[in-house]
Computed example of a mutant assay.
Amino acid sequence: MIKRSFIYSILIAICLPVAAFAQAQVAFGGLKHDSSLPIEISADQLTVDQSSGAATFSGNVVIGQGDMRLSAGKVRVEYATGADTTGEISRLHATGGVTLVNGAEAAEAREAVYTIATGVVVMTGSVILTQGQNALSSDKLTVNLRNGTGQMDGRVKSIIQTEAN
């Protein structure tokens, strides 16, 4: 009898992380987004640095692009260089309590870098991703907004609600 319960315990220990990992992979699908849409930025203050080709928005920064919203304490906007790219934003570097919301999914972190051309957002520092009642946390979240895929790195923890809850 002890043998059978020991075997069941091992099977549960092996299968549980696999199930959690499989479900965690689906959680990024709602973050799919069209990065070619116009970007709207509002903040309490704007500082422009002509020499570096960057602008820094600070204080209650909210950035909108389609249905996606990013909020932070400070966002540095880097513009693309070259004759054909006048005024095009190439990257956004957000710091100070960053929150990214798209539909029913939300991610929080200390900082985030959004590269517009690739549609990739890299969030770092105490990352928490929620989708409905499910939550994942890690040190780093990389999301490809074009195809809705993502990867979490560094001690990933998850809370996944079952249908019974």
Rank of each mutant, 00 (worst) to 15 (best):
V61I: 04
A43F: 07
A43T: 06
S42Y: 00
L16R: 05
L37E: 13
T85G: 06
L141C: 06
Y79V: 05
T115E: 14
I41W: 05
Q50E: 12
V156T: 10
G132Q: 08
L141Y: 06
G29P: 01
V122H: 07
S71K: 15
I160A: 06
V122A: 08
S9L: 10
A135D: 11
M68V: 09
S52D: 13
Y79K: 10
I159M: 13
V98D: 09
A24T: 07
V121P: 01
F57L: 10
A112C: 04
K157A: 13
D84M: 10
S51M: 13
Q161D: 09
E105V: 06
N144Q: 10
G132A: 03
S42W: 01
S138W: 00
K3W: 01
E78M: 14
F57V: 06
P38N: 00
A54M: 10
A135E: 15
V127E: 05
N60W: 12
K74G: 02
H93Y: 12
E108N: 04
R4L: 07
L31H: 02
M123K: 02
R76Y: 11
S58K: 07
L141F: 07
G103K: 12
G119L: 02
S58E: 11
S9F: 04
V143T: 09
A22N: 05
T118R: 03
A24E: 04
L46I: 08
E163N: 15
T95V: 11
A13L: 15
Q45L: 07
M123C: 05
R110C: 01
V26H: 10
I7S: 08
F21Y: 11
M68P: 04
G96M: 08
G148P: 08
A19D: 12
L11V: 15
A117Y: 03
I14Y: 05
V101Y: 01
F6D: 00
G148L: 03
D67S: 15
G132K: 02
F28K: 00
V120N: 09
S36K: 03
P38Y: 03
N60T: 08
E88Q: 15
A80M: 11
G73C: 11
G53Q: 12
G150C: 02
G73I: 03
T95D: 11
L16G: 06
R91S: 01
Q45E: 08
R4D: 04
V122W: 05
E88S: 13
N134P: 10
I116L: 07
S90V: 10
R76L: 14
F28Q: 01
Q25A: 08
N102C: 01
R146S: 15
M152C: 06
F6W: 11
K74P: 06
R91T: 13
Q131F: 09
F6E: 13
G96R: 00
R110W: 02
Q151Y: 01
S137G: 15
S58C: 05
S58T: 13
S35G: 07
Q50M: 13
A27K: 04
D67R: 13
R146G: 15
L129G: 04
S35M: 01
V77A: 11
F21N: 02
S126M: 06
G150A: 04
L46H: 02
V77N: 06
L37C: 03
I63T: 14
V98C: 08
T81E: 15
G97K: 00
D49A: 10
T86G: 07
G66M: 09
Y8E: 02
A104G: 12
G97Q: 11
V98A: 09
T130I: 08
T81N: 14
A27P: 00
D139F: 01
A54F: 03
G103Q: 06
T81K: 15
F28D: 00
Y8F: 14
